[in-house]
Write a protein that binds this DNA or RNA. Sequence first.
DNA 1: CATTAGT
DNA 2: ACTAATG
Length: 554
Amino acid sequence: MHAYLRRLCAPSPVPIRLLSPFPRSSHRGYFSSVRLLEEMRADAPVKIKIAYRRIITSLPRLSLKSRTKASLLAEWDLEVARVRAWSARVDSSLLERWTAKKMCLPSVTAFAVEQEGAPKSTTARQESTPSKGAGVATALTTRLQGEVDHLHPSNSRQRLLQPSKRLFSTSHSNIIEGRKQALTERIAADAVVDLQQVMADLRDLELLEKLHKTTVKAAAGFKDASRCLYPLWHDVDQGKKSKVTFAELQEALPPIYSVPWTHIAERLTSGTNSKLSTLSEKDKAALLLLRVYNIGSSRSEAFVAAGARTLEDLEPLARRKKISLVRAHKIGLRHFDDIERLIPRSEMMAFDAALRGALRKADPLLECELLGSFRRQASFSSDVDLVVRHKSFVNKDDEEAAASLMRRIVEVLEGENLLDDENRLMFGPKKYAGLARLPGNKHYRRIDIRLAPYHSYPYLLLGCSGDALLMKLLRHAAKKRGLCLNEYGLGEKYTADDQNPNGFKPGTLRVVKDEREIFDLLGFPYLTPKERDYAVWRPRYERAGVDLSHVHKL
DNA sequence: CATTAGT
DNA sequence: ACTAATG
């Protein structure tokens, strides 16, 4: 197997490095095939896997629908062949011409390849895989034309090969600034924006990444952008605002969100989104189903294959035993809208008070707190993240103690009408997931309840407050030091032989009194909860000299 | 066991 | 990166 992969990844006959004759700083957004091919040459099988992920996520290509394990190798083969064919067309004379023109903008470069590249290899490719070859070319052209349009709205396609001054900007921020300016020139500040549509686009683009199981990073970008716009949308939803202008949109979403901005720009100028509107009916249906709780990429595709196209199709299909719908799916369908809606901070505070009050009244020894984005001071949260501890639950493996404590807690909250057993999504000893509603409120909200083994509390605070990327970073750092960090503690990595349920060797657990000590143990500058958002900690850690070079692939 | 969800 | 619950 490894030999097979290695054969595929033998050094390319073309000196790929030549593709990037520009200084490092100038090609941040630069065509990732270079990196990809460099990684393909590396020996480690793990790297090859990463390279594979990169290939299928970063090259302009048709969306590959089936991601079954069996088809992976075939896809791999095809993609490698495609990259080879593409790179083989980049000869040194062409490269020199680009260099002379200072065409360092990657997408333009790629566009030029498509225009000037030998038609022979394109035809050859189309012969072997007719639908795919044609699709790739179309997708590439559409995407790049879209991008260039935003940089240079007035340019026709022919002029792209002799780009004007503004295309020569070499830094990423200049490019972004250029885009922003081009947009400002095209759209009036007081133009009314269909925010509902923009939000739907961002949501679907995020889901598309999820459906195709590509990088979480790309999906995160759309999610973050959507979060930036949510306060605006909420005001409209609440009737506090009748319309949103382009100026307000620009104010709310910073230009660093370059990819989301590209899509928004297309929507605002052309009224459509080419990436979404060209999806097949099946893919569109799969995107819709993905929005149901407990339907992920796998079930979504399976349900579509069974004939589902709308949410209403699911129940009949389940009755005819074509698919199986479990509890959580039915709840997810019943509360489809509520589960997607974010919770304003004011309501989170009300939940905090109500939950604390109910638990304290039942047993003064119950200690609880809301974590997640609420603890990071977010103005909107996607769910209520409650963590509870009690001296009756000390050892994380004492399932009996946990289960009886959890039953008590759920009983209390159901007694207060905050929870109800109808809307139970998950009910294990250490974790409950379901829907909660404040008395008099019309919306149900997603709630997670976690039990903390009494002395693990600082670790649980850290682990459950996030954000997700920070957790990955800290755990990765622990791993590199031969340690293992989880929400129960930090200890020496456990060598799998002996089956001890703990993540670390017995007796090596570092006992801490607060979160700060955990940062200290790992040698990271302390972050207050509010500082644990990627947009905040990334630059802060960068300045402190923390090695973040690998963060992008966490 | 794979799938989903969570930070 | 690492964990919990489900079916």
